[in-house]
Amino acid sequence: MSWMLPPSASTFAGDIDFLYYLILVITGVAFVVVEVGLIWFIIKYRSRPGRKAYYTHGSVRAEFIWTAIPAVTVVAIGILSAPVWTHVKGRFSAPADALIYRVTAKQFEWNFTHPGLDGTLDTDDDFTIRNRLHVPVNRPVLVRLVSEDVIHSFFVPAFRVKQDVVPGLNTQVWFEATRTGEFELGCAELCGLGHYRMRAMVTVHDADDYERWLASRATTTALR
């Protein structure tokens, strides 16, 4: 049981993780203050014979303080969150040089259309693989999301990326992987009886390896 986020592997994961830990500390302090206060009051002001409670209807000053502190805190969290949100999910936030992929989700599989050797989507050398996505490291990747049936959600925990895939709506999400390896991708929106098995694997290659993989892929495709 840990409060630490699992290891991250994308450029903006650090910003998201920072906000998470910041909120964890702030709420942790508030949690301790309130719970310790409650316990202290419970013990200190427990009923004892011959004692009468202090008769008061409140204190404007105290209430002002405990209105202002949370207000300032949450506004500060909001101000810190806003640029990260825009950077990750803003409508025009995806870097212009991003490699574009298309993901077609359907009950219960992910079909990844890779842009092929020419790096451009919707050309002849595109190819589609089921449940496996291959991307190069240190290069922004933009994923266009399409659903054939119900709502799914594209979730790669290590990249701190999640975006619903809505039929009839063109959604997209971008990320830039920072290390090579294999990362699990899951569906995060209940999509039917096979929802729990709608998973895929993202393989992050280094640049050379990615080229080699693309080339080998091109030969196998040609053979068929």
């Binding site: 986020l5 906000l19 998470y20 909120i23 702030i26 969290i77 909001g78 969150s81 959600s153 929106e189």
Partner: peptide, 20 residues
């Protein structure tokens, strides 16, 4: 506790990760 955990979700970038 329920109120404080809500702040995590209210922060949109953190919500990307913990949503659903």
């Amino acid at each position: 506790i329920g109120g404080l955990s809500g702040i995590f979700m209210a922060s949109t970038p953190v919500d990307i990760y913990i949503h659903d």
